[in-house]
């Protein structure tokens, strides 16, 4: 397994309060890596550090390195905009642009300088997100008319349309019903053939079902990191075991 993201001695602060403490983690290529932990443990903060999304929040600061494809994205000369072109993101609440389905996919590609055939791009991304058959006749209707699950798949399609190396997902199914969740999960599993995925989830079964490796965070500290099977069946730390078995969180 080739490692794609290395997080090294990473600290993150919102003003004076420290949200991440000396985080060191490795995520592998073409795998699904899950971040689990109770609310406020810093898992979303960590996820948003991987594409420098937290730069957009005032009064935040970080220490340490995150390396993607052996490039440190926290060097002073790195442009966060370029980082986000390589590291796509899917959010907790489906957030399609209030534009047509077509424009939702094409817009990101256009600002990234895509010069290829747009029709091909739209069809292939929608096909890969299992949405094509459902929306091929209404590509030019507003995306807000889609159901929640369809909207989230459109958001995933929008993210992969710019051909990122990594896709970050922040509880992508927490706003969806079980059927839509199942479809997204099978989609995510399908996507790992081409992309490396880091997913934050509150749902232990989901982490168990789809992820290859799991990191358990507590109060901004990585308590345990390893293969999902091992973490779930034989956790080394007592806290991990308690959390997974539902004793707190």
């Amino acid at each position: 397994m080739k490692s794609i993201i290395q997080i090294k001695n990473f600290n993150f602060f919102y003003g004076e309060s420290q949200a991440l403490h000396d985080v060191t983690l490795d995520f592998n290529e073409n795998q699904i890596s899950a971040l689990i932990g109770p609310s406020g443990c810093g898992k979303t903060t960590l996820l948003r550090c991987i594409n420098r999304m937290n730069d957009l929040i005032d009064d935040t600061r970080s220490e340490g390195n995150i390396t993607i494809h052996e490039k440190n994205i926290y060097l002073a000369e790195v442009d966060p905009v370029e980082v986000r072109r390589k590291v796509g993101m899917v959010f907790q609440k489906p957030n399609p642009f209030p534009k047509t389905i077509w424009d939702n996919i094409v817009w990101g590609a256009k600002i990234n300088g895509y010069t290829g055939n747009l029709e091909e791009l739209v069809e292939s991304t929608l096909t890969r997100t299992a949405l094509w058959d459902e929306v091929k006749d209404k590509l030019h209707t507003n995306a807000l008319f889609l159901s929640g699950g369809q909207q989230q798949r459109l958001c995933i399609a929008r993210a992969i349309a710019i051909k990122p190396d990594v896709i970050l997902m922040d509880e992508p199914t927490s706003a969806l019903d079980p059927v839509a969740t199942a479809r997204i999960e099978s989609l995510i599993t399908e996507l790992k053939k081409r992309y490396s995925i880091v997913i934050v989830t509150h749902n232990m079964q989901q982490a168990g079902r789809i992820s290859d490796c799991t990191s358990f965070l507590l109060n901004g500290v990585v308590v345990e990191h390893g293969r999902t099977k091992e973490i779930f069946l034989n956790p080394k730390e007592k806290k991990t075991e308690e959390y997974i078995s539902g004793e707190f969180g």
């Binding site: 905009v81 959010f91 609440k93 957030n95 642009f97 817009w107 929008r158």
Partner: peptide
């Protein structure tokens, strides 16, 4: 305009200017 639309745009590698004119103004 909801902030999650700005985040969606930034997440696609849009600059502030592209986000303003491509997402916020139409929105």
């Amino acid at each position: 305009v909801p902030n999650n639309l700005r985040e969606a745009s930034f997440g696609l590698g849009a600059t502030r200017l592209q986000t303003s004119f491509g997402v916020v103004i139409p929105g």
